[in-house]
Amino acid sequence: MKEELFVSGRAIPNIDPYLNIWHWQIPVYLFLGGLAAGLLFFAALYTLLGKEKQMPTAVKWATFLVPPALVLGLLSLFLDLKHKMFFWQLYTVIRLESPMSWGAWTLLIITPISILWSMMFLRELLEAWKGKDGKPAPMAVWSLKFLEKNQWIEQFIQWLVKYRKVLAWLMIYYGLILGIYTGILLSAFNARPLWNTSLLGPLFLVSGLSTAAATIMWMSKDHLERSTISRIDLMLIGIELFLIVHLFMGFLASSAVQIEAASLFLGGPYTVMFWVFVVFMGLILPAILETLELLGYKIPVMIPAILILFGGLVFRFVMVEAGQITRYLY
C-alpha cells in the first residue's frame, strides 16, 4: 500500500481551500460568454445568408440579450479577481500566450460590437413595445421622441445598417473566438489533467452555440424559425455527445493522471452530476423532446430550452469544480 502524508505545508489550513481558487464566478462567466458568442454567431450567420426576414428572432430580438450577458460575464470575472483594484492591468498588455489575456481583449472588442448591432433594431423594438392595455408603453413613447429629437442617432443607425455585413463578419469571427476561448481558458492548464485536452475548446464552443439556439427557440414566435433552429440544435447536441464520448476515450487512453481525472466521472463523485444532469437532462432529454416536437407532437418549447440552458450551466460548473481537484502530485 502506498501512503503519502503531509506534516506541514498542505496541513496549513489557509492554503488548501484557497488552491481551489475558482468558484461560481468562473463557470458563470464561461456560460454567459458561450451564450453570447452563440447568439452573435447565429445573428451574423442569418444576416450574411440573407435570411433576416425569415429569422427575426435570431437576427434581431435575441441579440438584445448579448450586451447584458457580456457585461454580467465580465462582472463575474471581476468578482473572481482577488486583487480587484489592479483590474486595469489586464488592459495594459496583450499577452498572446495567456488565454486569460486574449479573452479579456476579445470581450473588450465584442461588447461594443454587440451594442452597435442591437442599436440597429432599437426603433423597431420600441415601436413594438406595448403596455398591458395594448397602447405603446410610456417609456417607449418617450424614447422614440428622444430619437426624433436627436437625428444624429438616427443617421448613425442608418450608417450602421449600411455596413451591417461588415459588422456581421466581425461578429462571426469574434463570436467563434469567444466561444472557443471559453474552453481554451481551461484546456491551457496542463497542471489540471481533466482540463488539459484540446477537445475542450470545440466542446465549449458547440455547447455555447447550443445554449444560444435554445434561447432563440424559446424566444421565437415564428413556427418556421423555431423548427429551423431546432434542427440545428439537434445537430449541435449530436456533435456534443460525440465530443463527450471522445473526451473520455482520450482520457482513458492517456497517462495515469488523466485516467484518474476521468474516473471522477466514471464512478467517482461527479458521476451523477455529469451523466444525469449534463448528459441526460441537458442533452439527451431535450433532443428527444425536440424531435417529438418536430414530428408534430405538442410540446412547449420552453421545456427543452430550459433543460439545455440548465445543462450547459451545470456542465461548466462540473468541469471547473472537478478540474481543480485533478493534479499531478499527491
Binding site: K82, H83, F86, Q324, L329
Partner: peptide
C-alpha cells in the same frame, strides 16, 4: 502591483507552489 489575482497561475502550477495572499495578490 501588476497581479490582478485572477488565479490563472495557481491553476497552472503542477506543484501547487503558489497561494493567494490575504491582500489579494
Amino acid at each position: 502591483h501588476r497581479c490582478i489575482g485572477c488565479g490563472a497561475c495557481i491553476q497552472s502550477c503542477p506543484y501547487d507552489a503558489r497561494y493567494s495572499h490575504p491582500e489579494g495578490y
